[in-house]
Amino acid sequence: MTSRSTTRVPGWALGLAGVAVFLLLLQILPTAGVIDRRFFPPASEMFGALSSWLVAPQFWTALGQTLTTWITGLAIAFVAGSVLGILIGEIPGMRALTASTIEFLRPVPSVALVPLVVMLYGPTMQSTLILVVYASIWQVLLQVLAGVGSVDPVADDTARSYRFSLWTRVRTVTLPSALPYVMTGLRLAASVALILTLTGELLIGTPGLGSLLIDARASGQYPLIYALVLVAGALGLAVNLIFRQIERRTMFWHPSIRGEVAA
């Protein structure tokens, strides 16, 4: 019987190797002419463009604008989604009353609203904000609803039997058991909000990284396009990591939920 080799390469080293191979391919494929170099500059040029842009104030302004839109939209969606979720979840009959409407509105692609918001608000941050809020509020709302539904009926009965007020009940029973779900909703909403922030900037021209990208394309600065994609990816990665960390903090005691999370 063959025994497994005892010297296994650790996972992180393989992961590092994966990144290295990926970067190497990015460098070699265009220089070797496998991919059209005009449209796909080698990694060195992408990072060159990135590093020269990292000192440009325009870049930081754009990044700041993108982050502002993202976090504002996320905050609005989070607060509104949570309040709506708690109201719908706690007031008897509300779930049944709103279910069909939520099911209908949720899958409506938020980009459908682009022409409407452009018409109403023009290429302003407000336009993009509406897209962001519309897209990400569902993530929060649905998770909050699931969280409110997850409350242990015995705990809830206890709270009701002591005639706790709605607010006390929410504070002492609903919130603690719903918190992990809420945090999952926040994480999902955070990445959706980022996607829609950049979409808004691309389609509407709201100032930010997305509109910078449009300018780069219009002026044929292709390495810059890729540099901006790298930045966007790094941003997305950071958002994922941070919010996953927050989520983990709040639900360390509730490992079972992770498997059930559905976006």
């Binding site: 996972g11 992180w12 393989l14 992961g15 590092l16 190797a17 994966g18 990144v19 191979v21 990926f22 059209d36 449209f39 796909f40 990445s191 980022l194 996607i195 922030t197 950049l198 979409t199 691309l202 389609l203 990284l209 997305g210 990208l213 449009i214 780069a216 394309r217 292709y222 396009i225 890729y226 901006l228 994609v229 966007a232 990816g233 790094a234 941003l235 997305g236 990665l237 958002v239 994922n240």
Partner: peptide, 26 residues
């Protein structure tokens, strides 16, 4: 999986709409 995961995580993190201009180039 160990080899691919970090790169895949990065690709997942890129908001897809931003790839539109690149694909249009090609």
């Amino acid at each position: 999986r160990d080899f691919c995961e970090p790169v895949l995580e990065f690709f997942r993190a890129i908001p897809p709409p931003i790839l539109t201009p690149i694909l249009m180039l090609f």
